[in-house]
Design a protein around this nucleic acid. Structure first.
Lengths: 149, 149
DNA sequence: GATATGATGAAAATGAATTTCATCATCAGA
DNA sequence: TCTGATGATGAAATTCATTTTCATCATATC
């Protein structure tokens, strides 16, 4: 973690930025937080140790991390965006509509077929998003007495 | 088209709604419009024939069509939602980041693999979204002198 | 035709995200 | 180490899509 923060620090410096205490706290908080956080969640958690930090700084810092390639914006259609660390390799998401759990998955076969599809249309892909919405194992119809029983 | 509008009309009545001129204009406008319209685009086009129609009515009418199963909300991350008719069977989208063109595609292989993935995680899917972003044939790197030359 | 109630549109409200701006902090050079 | 330039901050204001409110209008129903 220390290594990572120092590396990001160096990249910010190299890009003409300056160090700042608030930003450091937000960045560390982001990598320590559970994945797929909203700005609001992250702001709340970061303020536990550094109460003065404004939500605007959290917005700005995550935009910065995204620009540097360390964070990824997600949108599960909830109104507010979520962010995940971009350190682990690319993956897609299963999103439970009941409890909000997000399961990450990776499927080489799907990716290959996507490549075929784009090639067939002469399309040059730069990114994709695949989300499957439904009910996770725990919330599945039949396993949720209070909802279906 | 006439048939379709009458059928929707009947469904609205059956659900306890009433007929309305404005709404009829919006619904017809929606099915005549090019696919993947924004509220703003549809409002503008609808106002050419019925200037008094408020954007709020367009919002409400598309929500209604969605509830009835005739329209689908899309979000290509542009800030404003888009809507497409839900009459044609399910498909996914290639979205050009340069010119905004949207190509629809359908790939049974991808869908099958998605089913496998969800089953592997004990997940019960109810919907999914797959969008591939990049450059369409016309805007592809190498074909766009003003951008890459 | 009278009446209950759904639909409308303008304006206000909401809420996430961004911008503005005065102030503070940090880096670079003397 | 001091100092000036400029990046970063946080509060408040702004933006923008969408939703809600509300007085009024329109349409089914009796």
């Amino acid at each position: 973690m220390k290594r990572l923060l120092e590396r990001i620090d160096r990249e910010i410096l190299a890009a003409g930025g300056k160090r700042s205490r608030s930003r450091a706290v937000v960045i560390e908080g982001f990598f320590r937080a559970r994945d797929h956080v909203t700005i609001e969640e992250l702001t709340r958690s970061v303020r536990e140790s550094a109460p003065g930090i404004g939500a605007v700084t959290v917005y700005r810092t995550l935009k910065l991390l995204e620009r540097l390639g360390y964070a990824k914006e997600l949108d599960f259609g909830e109104g507010a965006r979520r962010y995940e660390s971009n350190l682990s390799p690319h993956h897609d998401h299963l999103v439970c509509r009941q409890c909000g759990t997000v399961i990450e998955f990776k499927d080489r076969g799907i990716e290959n077929l996507q490549d075929l599809v784009t090639r067939r249309h002469g399309f040059h892909p730069t990114a994709h998003r695949l989300e499957i919405y439904g009910f996770c194992r725990k919330c599945a119809p039949g396993n949720s007495p209070e909802r279906f029983g």
